[in-house]
């Protein structure tokens, strides 16, 4: 791709979304916009650029901005939430549900699948300890295109290197040319389904763990509170909610409370488990 064309995409994104594209992210243009170019019948990104320099179709611009802005994700994104899942959430759930042996997990913005598959890999690492458990992971997203990508579980060399330890790549992926495909035993642990967070959640059922990271930022304050309120209704009383690093419930809803000393982790305000942790913290 010509440098001048990189500049065009960078300026377009800045103007339409406020997203800043630095040169070391140039690979994102390639991997994300080639499918858009194909969809619109352009043989290359340089060709698509010529169209953009003329009078471009507003829908083409919409497709490009959507492809570049949403779905920013990686395996084990931000690391900490997954450490929390492995070291705190999962042990607590395995203790509390030792008789029912059932855990339901919801990734509310599953995107191209990295988050649910990261959780599935961590579950797999538990090995025999979870052998007779029924663990469901539901991944939902508002983009049907991205859900198809998630279902394929096929990733580029760049994607499998951001956040994913090499030992996990060796264990849980198969190589096909330049692509890396998540193995079937991990793939079949996750179900994907289209879902808009503004829709009625009742049909999704009840969850023990909800990952809802970096998606509420797209909504205004009132809608955020309303969505969180409805998520709370879908959660077990001792269920655990993970929000993105820059997100909070403070000043947005009273239905969730932050778990002390566990950044990003929330429980229902009426949770008996939270009452006992607060008491423990107070005593300390």
């Amino acid at each position: 791709m010509h440098i001048s064309n990189f500049d065009l995409y960078r300026d377009l994104l800045k103007e339409k979304s406020g997203l800043t594209l630095t040169p070391d992210k140039a690979y994102l243009i390639e991997s994300r916009l080639m499918p858009i170019a194909k969809k619109w019948g352009y043989t290359s990104l340089d060709n698509m650029c010529m169209a953009l320099r003329g009078v471009p179709d507003p829908n083409l611009i919409k497709d490009i901005v959507e492809a570049m802005t949403t779905n920013e994700t990686s395996f084990f994104r931000d690391t900490k939430p997954f450490d929390l899942f492995r070291d705190h959430i999962l042990p607590a759930m395995m203790k509390d549900r030792a008789s029912a042996r059932k855990i339901r997990i919801w990734c509310a913005a599953a995107s191209s699948g990295q988050e649910p598959y990261s959780l599935a890999m961590l579950l797999k690492e538990k090995g025999a300890a979870l052998a007779n458990w029924q663990i469901d992971i539901l991944g939902t997203d508002i983009s049907t295109d991205i859900l198809e990508t998630a279902k394929r579980g096929e990733y580029s060399q760049f994607e499998v290197q951001r956040g994913l330890p090499i030992t996990m790549l060796m264990k849980y992926f198969e190589q096909k040319g330049e692509r890396w495909i998540i193995k079937d035993d991990i793939k079949k642990m996750v179900k994907y389904q289209y879902f808009n967070l503004l829709d009625n959640m009742a049909a999704l059922g009840r969850f023990d763990i909800v990952f809802c990271r970096n998606v509420l930022i797209y909504f205004d304050k009132e809608t955020k509170g309303e969505i969180l309120g409805r998520i709370a209704k879908q959660m077990a009383p001792d269920g655990m909610l993970l929000l993105g690093g820059a997100e909070t419930v403070m000043g947005i809803t009273e239905t969730f409370k932050a778990v002390p000393d566990k950044r990003g982790l929330y429980m229902r305000a009426d949770s008996p488990a939270l009452a006992s942790t607060s008491a423990a913290t107070a005593v300390k």
Binding site: D24, K25, Y27, S74, Q157, F158, Q161, R162, G163, P165, I166, T167, L169, M170
Partner: peptide, 24 residues
């Protein structure tokens, strides 16, 4: 990759790389 890890490598980066990958 397998040969490198067996020989005692701790991690493995496939070129091309960027700062995010090295950092990660």
């Amino acid at each position: 990759i397998q040969r490198a890890m067996t020989a005692g490598a701790n991690e493995y980066i496939m070129k091309p790389f960027d700062s995010d990958i090295i950092k990660s």
